[in-house]
Design a protein around this nucleic acid. Structure first.
Length: 583
DNA sequence: AAAGAGATAAACATGC
DNA sequence: TGCATGTTTATCTCTT
């Protein structure tokens, strides 16, 4: 029933634990999974509807025959017409549903994968098709009448164009992108509206004699050599997979952008047509982010150790994954600037590429039980640096972990032990006797002395990001312009087009480096061969001589540090007990 | 293959 | 005595 298209919980868990995907990608993946399931349900529904229609038709025709040939042809025609209309309605509803899914970015129909008659779905049934369909239906019916077998008619596999029951939906959106680009592409009507119109010898990755695979641009004389190239050069490997993931992010960004522009348009229309007394004509950010952004004082005022709260305050999404998406959307729309300001003030640093990434992922990690791709040391450091006094007690560090990461609301014994272990082990963490006991501080020098680190537990992610760094040129100027136009930070000196990609890569690189990149205002924090980072990226924590290879950037976590009081919830996740069911 | 780094587990000490 | 805190060692995995 639940077909293999949908990723099993085990697979999903594996994906989550291996962290082969970035938070955004996870969101996309989850959404696509939801869409797939929804799609299956829709297909079931439509199939049933159509079966009903066929049965209806059969019964009608049977009755007509039983009633003799006296029945007027007009009546038959009227019934047929009604049926046609009904059929058309079903098709339209179905088409609408699927298109809506696509518009929402929840569904990506891959050519040749869904088994759906995509041409009908995306274009609607043209009259000729309907006529043909009608002929098929009636012919089949007549045949079956001759066979005196009514049952089989409901099994309308022979009704091409009506068969929506094919379960051949993608097993994995990620991999299926591969499948479709691995030479398996058939000249179906293709997915979505972002791709071009195919002709018999066309391919979405082939245009104007050029391979349009991200970053490829190889030129080919004919389509077959292109296909050869596609199969050889863009086969299923790590690189291609990573590029597909990146492409998913690009698409997601575009979808977000589209959503924003739609919202803006709506607001404009509302403003022009409706005289509202409230300044609400402008779309309000979805509660979560706006409140999070604007209410900061409470956090500073109260100790993180105070007042245990329920795990889910009104501002905490109960359904993390689905809502995270909306949060991110709203976030990208309305909350960037305030957060930036807050961030800049607090850390005396300009907005970095990591900000958006973390602002998004902060929400993600706060609510999704996904292990953050940062080392304990980095997290501890971040927690400490985030504190007003740049020092925290062990318990406060614990609280920060549980507050900021859903993942650390379970298995407390394990990760707390790891935290203590890290505090003791790393020289960069200095224990200071304080009035209220011992607190931990960060020795930035020591922290920077650490060797460049890998990302624990997520090598695939690193690889993906690194791969994505070479991805830049493929992003369109239009996309960048669109982003810029909406105050989504773009780094024009960088070839990386997507802020998300950029920030993601940056965050990861920082994590790899393991420390603040203060002093690297010259933009030298981009590794050779990697994407250049904006010169404006500057963090003024300390000015220290840095080893060129050792300059580091905290942004991955610093942005996490941009936590506002709403995140705090002033609650302690003291223990794993009782919190495991949060998500 | 070796070394380094990080995660995890666990033993142990200390202080409240 | 129990618990929180802190230190240390061991082992494993992964990357370089």
């Amino acid at each position: 029933m639940m077909t293999p298209q949908v990723i099993t919980p085990q697979q999903m868990q594996q994906i989550l634990q291996q962290q082969v995907l970035s938070p955004q990608q996870l969101q996309v993946l989850l959404q696509q999974q939801q869409a797939l399931m929804l799609q299956q349900q829709l297909q079931e529904f439509y199939k049933k509807q159509q079966e009903q229609l066929h049965l209806q038709l059969l019964q009608q025709q049977q009755q007509q025959q039983h009633a003799g040939s006296k029945q007027s042809k007009e009546q038959v025609s009227a019934q047929q017409l009604a049926f046609q209309q009904q059929l058309l309605q079903v098709q339209q509803v179905q088409q609408q549903h699927l298109l809506n899914l696509q518009r929402q970015g929840l569904l990506t129909i891959q050519p040749g994968q869904t088994g759906l008659p995509l041409h009908s779905l995306t274009q609607g049934m043209i009259p000729a098709e309907l006529q043909q369909l009608w002929k098929e239906v009636t012919n089949a019916h007549v045949k079956e009448e001759h066979n005196n077998n009514n049952n089989s008619s409901s099994n309308n596999n022979g009704h091409r164009g009506l068969d929506l029951s094919s379960p051949a939906t993608p097993k994995n959106p990620l991999l299926n992108q591969h499948a479709s680009t691995n030479g398996q592409y058939m000249s179906h009507k293709r997915e979505g509206s972002t791709l071009e119109e195919p002709s018999p010898n066309s391919h979405p990755l082939y245009g104007h004699g050029v391979c349009k695979w991200p970053g490829c641009e190889a030129v080919f004389d004919d389509f077959h050599s292109f296909l050869k190239h596609l199969n050889n050069e863009h086969a299923l490997d790590d690189r291609s997979t990573a590029q597909c993931r990146v492409q998913m992010q690009v698409v997601q960004q575009l979808e977000l952008q589209l959503a924003k522009d739609k919202e803006r348009l709506q607001a404009m229309m509302t403003h022009l047509h409706v005289k509202s007394t409230e300044p609400k004509a402008t779309p309000q950010p979805l509660n979560l982010v706006s409140s999070v952004t604007l209410s900061k004082s409470a956090h500073e005022a109260s100790s993180p150790l105070s007042l245990p709260q329920t795990p889910t305050t009104p501002t905490t999404p109960l359904t993390p994954l689905s809502q995270t998406h909306s949060v991110i959307t709203a976030n990208s729309l309305h909350s960037v600037a305030p957060r930036r300001r807050f961030f800049s003030e607090k850390y005396n640093m300009p907005i970095s590429p990591g900000t958006d990434y973390i602002n998004q992922n902060k929400d993600f990690y706060m609510n999704a039980d996904v292990r953050p791709p940062f080392t304990y040391a980095s997290l501890i450091r971040q927690a400490i640096l985030e504190s007003p006094e740049k020092q925290l007690t062990l318990n406060e560090i614990y609280n920060w972990f549980t507050r900021m990461f859903a993942y650390f609301r379970r298995n407390a014994a394990t990760w707390k032990n790891a935290v203590r272990h890290n505090l003791s082990l790393h020289k960069c963490f200095v224990r200071v006797e304080n009035v209220k006991g011992a607190v931990w501080t960060v020795d930035e020098l020591e922290f920077q002395k650490r060797r460049p680190q890998k990302i624990s537990g997520s090598p695939a992610l690193v690889k993906n990001i690194q791969t994505s760094l070479g991805y830049g040129p493929t992003l369109s100027a239009a996309f960048q312009a669109s982003m810029a136009e909406n105050n989504i930070p773009l780094y024009t000196t960088a070839s990386i087009g997507s802020p998300t990609l950029h920030s993601l890569a940056h965050a990861i690189r920082e994590e790899m480096n393991g420390a603040m990149d203060h002093g690297n205002s010259n933009g030298s924090d981009s590794s050779p061969g990697r994407s250049p980072l904006p010169a404006m990226h500057h963090i003024s924590v300390k000015e220290e001589p840095l080893d060129p290879d050792d300059h580091e950037g905290p942004l991955s976590l610093v942005t996490t540090a941009n936590h506002s009081p709403d995140f705090d919830h002033h609650r302690d996740y003291d223990d794993d007990q009782g919190h495991d069911d949060m998500l």
